[in-house]
Amino acid sequence: MSAVLMMGFFSLLCSCIFMVLDAVDVAFTEAAVGAGASTIFFLAAIAIVGRTSKPSKPGKTFIPLIACIATGTLLFYASFDMPYFGKADAPIHQHVAPRYLQESAGEVGPPNVVTSVLASYRGYDTFGEVGVVFTAFIGVLLLLGAGTRRTGVERPAPPNVNEESMRQKVVLREVADLVIAPVLIFALYVQWHGDFGPGGGFQAGVIFASAIILYALIYGIVPAQQLLPPRKLAYLPGVGLLLYAGVGVYSMLRGGNFLDYDMVASNPLDGQHYGILIIELGVGITVASVMINIFFSLSERSL
């Protein structure tokens, strides 16, 4: 239990580190994921499997300790060959990065270079990543079910003690009421403003999902599932992925390569703009619906 809460703090600290290191988009994602989604998933899991663990036998920790110290020493030794922190002439900054920084404004358009690289230059990578998220979602669905058991006809009287007590906590409920709607609007802002400032489909999806998860935590899982029926929600990750692939196929039909947005509209820059907006929307839909679905599946099991 405390380990999981420490994890939450740890990832919040990490997001501050990313912020200091100029990675605003990454800090954004880490804050939304660490404080929103992953901590809740861990809490839902330990609600099922129990929070106590037996201490390891003293003899059993010896070999891992030696292995870790040995590996750490080797890596430490290897670090002396690495370029110093912050050096502009490090090999990592010589290859493709200068082109991204110098040409992306003319070739792709958005001032946020991270968005142009993510959605346009490395669109295949991102497509693969969305595919991995989708695959992980299918895995969770196969292992735990789609969270549809309690929306069926024969609904057993649920042991809703926790949910009831949550709803009666006035401060929690009022703060949640205050926060949920702005968070949802903020998620949409992050979604559509990703070209110009930090943000994009990944962050927006997680932020949107955490607002829904907050609603489910305060008002109980049943109202949340009435709002977003899991059976229909389970289609959305596929819709998002197909939207992404659809842009690729459309650009092929227009005579370009797969995911070549230059062909999406008559003017290449307009094409890039539309292409990025649509694939970011696909990413956002997939990520948000996967997160909400996983939360439903995990929390179903603990009731």
């Binding site: 994921v33 992953s38 899991a45 990065a97 991102t126 998220v133 292992l143 990944f202």
Partner: peptide, 27 residues
């Protein structure tokens, strides 16, 4: 350099999805 940012921001979201898969297996 924007390239590591792109790689890591997608890796974070993929990471939470795979974490959820691991938790599902644990359950």
């Amino acid at each position: 350099n924007p390239l590591p940012h792109v790689l890591i921001l997608t890796a974070i979201v993929v990471g939470v999805a795979t974490t959820a898969l691991g938790l599902a297996i644990a359950v």
